[in-house]
């Protein structure tokens, strides 16, 4: 019989993180670079998905890693889940403070070399529409949708990171899809 483990990462990865944390706390600042390199991409994508702005995503990432460094001795449990929560909370704070009517992923976007100009136009159209709709989703639905569809995480992984249940997250993602589709339709009605 096989069981599906809800681990976000292998246990030895968490152990490896703990070893690095010990080194950083012992004075090796450079060791922190390993953690930055290991986790910056998924965290950046989360911030980008939530804020829609590459510049804001970079700032949130930087501030979050600095905060993580300053409070590294307070890590209890897995580092990746801990630092994710710092980034996620920063994104929520940003969304609360700044109401934006337009967001864009395209500030530093690069077109795919595989697409024809027509396909690229269609894609840009859909991307703009998605941004429009995503920016209008309530914060919790947006977070669930971004984690599921943009970051490609499993429900089990999301449940660990957001400290909630798989059932609750499924409901959020389903509602997010319904709202997103309705918003897309509304734009073209």
């Amino acid at each position: 019989m096989t069981t599906s483990a809800p681990n976000v990462e292998p246990v030895d990865q968490a152990d490896a993180d703990q070893e690095i944390i010990t080194r950083v706390l012992a004075g090796s600042k450079d060791a922190f670079g390993i953690l930055i390199q290991r986790y910056s991409d998924p965290l950046y994508r989360h911030a980008l998905g939530m804020t829609g702005s590459p510049d804001v995503a970079e700032d949130i990432l930087q501030a979050s890693f600095i905060k993580a460094y300053q409070h590294l001795s307070e890590v209890r449990g897995r580092f990746d889940a801990w630092v994710f929560r710092i980034v996620a909370n920063s994104c929520k704070d940003w969304l609360k403070n700044i109401r934006r009517t337009h967001v864009s992923y395209e500030e530093d976007d690069q077109p795919s070399s595989l697409s024809s100009p027509e396909e690229e136009m269609d894609r840009n159209e859909l991307r703009t529409d998605l941004e429009y709709a995503l920016a209008r989703l309530p914060e919790s639905l947006r977070e669930a949708f971004v984690m599921k569809h943009v970051e490609g995480r499993s429900y089990e992984e999301m449940a660990v990171l957001l400290e909630t249940t798989v059932g609750a997250l499924k409901m959020r993602v389903h509602r997010a899809r319904e709202s997103l589709q309705a918003l897309l339709e509304e734009k073209y009605a």
Binding site: K29, D41, Q62, S73
Partner: peptide, 26 residues
């Protein structure tokens, strides 16, 4: 969007910004 990576300069910018921060003793 899932294929997006952190811009290279961001990682080094973060590391450099740690320079003046106090080391965190255990």
């Amino acid at each position: 969007l899932r294929r997006r990576h952190t811009p290279i300069h961001v990682q080094s910018r973060i590391l450099n910004s740690l320079t003046d921060l106090p080391a965190v003793p255990d």
